[in-house]
Design a protein around this nucleic acid. Structure first.
Length: 441
RNA sequence: GGAGAGGUGACCGAGCGGUCGAAGGUGCACGAUUGGAAAUCGUGUGUGCCUGAAAGGGUACCAAGGGUUCGAAUCCCUUCCUCUCCGCCA
């Protein structure tokens, strides 16, 4: 969420910055300026009225409750009271409209990032390693995995439907090995604290990180007390209490400090967590329907950081490096892309995608996305810090990145480490986590 | 799922419907005292919004929302959360 005051005072700058994302982002500002003016008008009148009311009420306290003056003043106060109730209702209405509008406005892209409309305009920052020189025609991970008996898409579909899969034997073991390997690296080498959070969260948490209200369609939702949108019979007035399956560990990790004022000396705070992630993938029909690339449920190790504003951009470089280190140690070839303004995620100011090479697809595919959010999430979630006692609290900057998506890492290993006979070598770094297994065949 | 008890400031804990942003204590900060510390004494110590150059002033917030009232932390309703006991269960 943007700072309302900043938006109102720098309307042209904000409009221009949002315009870099595209027309829709610019349009999202909509009636905000007009609403803000109405709000300050209403608040002004309300304050004046309240002052009058408070003064009069204080006088009432001292009067004889039986006296005529008390009765007379009570009558006139009644009118002021009614009027202020009306104004309060109006204030609430404007405030709600304003917040609703503001929650839909994307973050301002950082000035230095490339211009562009789509992924085609993203800028390659660097590459690591080279494409493996295969002396045969590389297979896709689906064909390799099914033939090896470690991936089972048919039974995944039987259990749950399209975009679900089953890992078996060395496949399941590889998933677990990757999780352990990544967590060990980030906690022991990179200084992150390991967290094991809930996978179901409330709507307030999703609002904090920005998935709600704008992207509800991408989430799996559960309403435990309700069935088919109907309240339980014995509690007709019960509000709709809802929980959502997390789309990423970013949500619980960032919201750990929602509504908190942190002490400056605790910064930076660095968390990592393995969680399953759930995405409805609405609107992606026909995309990546084969294989593990786009699933409704997948595993991921996430990195989340809380930083002082002045260290945030350096922290993004560091965090990206931490995600890259996973790929380096696994010996996987990849490239780093800086996203252009038009391809940037809703809440982020600057973002690097790590794209791993998939020989079977003859393409680079996103395996990690590392973002700097500025104070966008912190303002929504009210995450602040105080440098030292007596200072004014200020918003932290939040960052996060995949470190990495485990399923896609497994895909990359299958495809980059495949051999002519269809077997797959286990990257050296993972062998200890695989009980010494060196080749899957 | 059944029965009960609660949710007040960093924490503990008071609070007859008006003088309560809220007693008291702890913690913390600063000052005094000390060779230094402990102890002691003094002062200060929430957040948002509006306003002001600043000092300050105004206003809202006592889980959340609604209601009663001229006036609500205090009364009523709803919801959420926490704790204890029982049952069920990984």
């Amino acid at each position: 969420m943007l700072d309302l005051r900043y938006v109102v005072e720098h309307l042209d700058d904000v409009r221009a910055a949002l315009g870099r994302r595209g027309e829709a982002a610019k349009q999202s500002l909509g009636p905000i300026a007009a609403l803000a003016e109405r709000r300050s008008n209403v608040m002004g009148r309300l304050q004046a009225l309240r002052e009058e009311k408070n003064e009069a009420n204080a006088a009432m306290a001292k009067l004889d409750k039986q006296g005529d003056e008390f009765k007379a003043r009570r009558e006139s106060l009644k009118r002021i009271s009614d009027e202020s109730k009306q104004l309060e209702a109006e204030e609430r209405e404007v405030q709600t409209a304003l917040e609703t509008a503001l929650l839909l406005v994307p973050n301002l892209p950082a000035p230095g990032i490339p211009d562009g409309q789509s992924a085609d305009d993203n800028r390659e920052v660097r590459q690591h390693g080279v494409k493996p020189a295969l002396s045969f025609k590389p297979k896709e991970h689906v064909d390799l995995g099914v033939a090896l008996g470690i991936l089972d898409f048919d039974r995944g579909a039987k259990l749950s439907g399209a975009r679900f899969s089953v890992l078996k034997g060395a496949g399941a073991q590889l998933e677990r090995a990757l999780m352990m390997f990544m967590l060990d690296l980030h906690t022991r080498q990179h200084g992150y604290t390991e967290i094991w959070p809930p996978a179901l969260v409330n709507d307030e948490s999703l609002r904090g990180t920005g998935q709600l209200p704008k992207f509800a369609g991408d989430l799996f939702r559960i309403a435990p007390d309700w069935q088919d949108g109907i309240a339980p019979a014995d509690k007709p007035d019960a509000p709709r209490r809802e929980l959502y399956l997390i789309p990423t560990a970013e949500v619980p990790l960032t919201n750990l400090h929602r509504d908190e004022i942190l002490e400056g000396e605790t910064l930076p705070i660095k968390y990592t967590a393995y969680t399953p992630c759930f995405r409805s993938e609405a609107g992606s029909y026909g995309k990546d329907t084969r294989g593990l690339i786009r699933q409704h449920q997948f595993d991921k190790v996430e990195l989340v950081r809380f930083e002082r504003a002045e260290h945030a951009e350096a922290a993004l470089e560091e965090l990206t490096g931490h995600a890259e280190e996973v790929l380096k140690r696994l010996g996987l070839h990849y490239r780093v892309m800086e996203l252009c303004a038009g391809d940037l995620g809703n809440g982020s100011k600057r973002c690097y995608d790590l794209e791993v090479w998939l020989p079977g697809q003859d393409a680079y595919r996103e395996i990690s996305s590392c973002s700097w959010f500025g104070d966008f999430q912190a303002r929504r979630a009210r995450i602040r810090y105080r440098e030292k006692q007596g200072d004014k609290p200020q918003l932290v900057h939040t960052l996060n990145g995949s470190g990495l998506a485990i399923g896609r890492t497994l895909v990359a290993i299958l495809e980059q480490y495949q051999q002519a006979d269809g077997s797959v070598c286990v990257p050296t770094a993972l062998v200890p986590y695989m009980g010494g297994l060196e080749v899957i065949q």
